[in-house]
Amino acid sequence: MADVNRGNRPLSPFMIGPYYRPQLNSITSIVNRIAGIALLGGAMLVVWWLMAAATSEAYFNMVDGLLTSILGDLVMTLSVLALWYHALAGVRHLVWDLGYGLDPADADKMGWGMIIGAPALTFLTIISI
């Protein structure tokens, strides 16, 4: 028989507002996807830098000047942050695939571990260079 209550419930969990309250796991999942896309941009910048090195000295100096400027340093630092965040999310998913940490309390702890761990590891990466 047809569900008569179908029209009274939200159609999607992505209807943020009165129907759906974002949770830590949903936010970390969305940020993980954004970090993955941002990593593609950072990788393209590194490839551009390498291709400039193979092209000519003048072109390499121009690209190198852009990537070592303050804006370039900021973009590369954010790329390292995205890399660490994405890596920690991958470890979290590996732990989940092994069947551990699936209850909400443990999932939230791992989410906070990603949120705190990525900037901490980024800082350690920057000071170690």
Score class of each variant (00 low, 15 high):
73 D>M: 13
63 V>Y: 08
62 M>Q: 14
28 T>R: 07
84 W>G: 05
119 P>V: 02
105 A>K: 15
47 V>F: 14
123 F>Q: 05
96 W>E: 05
67 L>H: 13
78 L>K: 05
91 V>P: 01
26 S>A: 14
122 T>Q: 03
95 V>H: 00
76 M>V: 10
25 N>P: 07
107 A>I: 08
49 W>S: 12
81 L>Q: 03
6 R>C: 06
96 W>N: 05
28 T>K: 04
76 M>C: 06
100 Y>I: 01
11 L>C: 06
79 S>R: 05
89 A>G: 04
15 M>V: 09
119 P>E: 03
29 S>E: 14
77 T>R: 10
69 S>Y: 06
15 M>N: 11
83 L>Q: 09
60 F>Y: 15
106 D>P: 06
52 A>N: 09
118 A>W: 00
80 V>W: 10
54 A>C: 06
35 A>K: 00
12 S>D: 12
113 G>F: 00
62 M>Y: 12
6 R>P: 02
121 L>M: 08
7 G>A: 13
112 W>G: 04
128 S>F: 11
19 Y>I: 05
55 T>Q: 11
91 V>K: 00
17 G>D: 02
108 D>R: 15
36 G>R: 00
51 M>Y: 10
126 I>T: 11
45 L>C: 09
95 V>K: 01
109 K>R: 15
7 G>W: 09
42 G>P: 08
60 F>C: 06
6 R>D: 14
23 Q>R: 14
74 L>Y: 12
32 N>S: 05
51 M>A: 14
41 G>R: 06
79 S>T: 15
27 I>Y: 11
48 W>G: 09
96 W>R: 10
107 A>P: 04
84 W>V: 07
67 L>R: 11
67 L>Y: 15
94 L>K: 03
1 M>F: 13
18 P>C: 04
33 R>P: 02
34 I>E: 00
32 N>L: 06
23 Q>I: 09
10 P>Y: 08
30 I>T: 09
46 V>T: 13
41 G>K: 04
58 A>R: 09
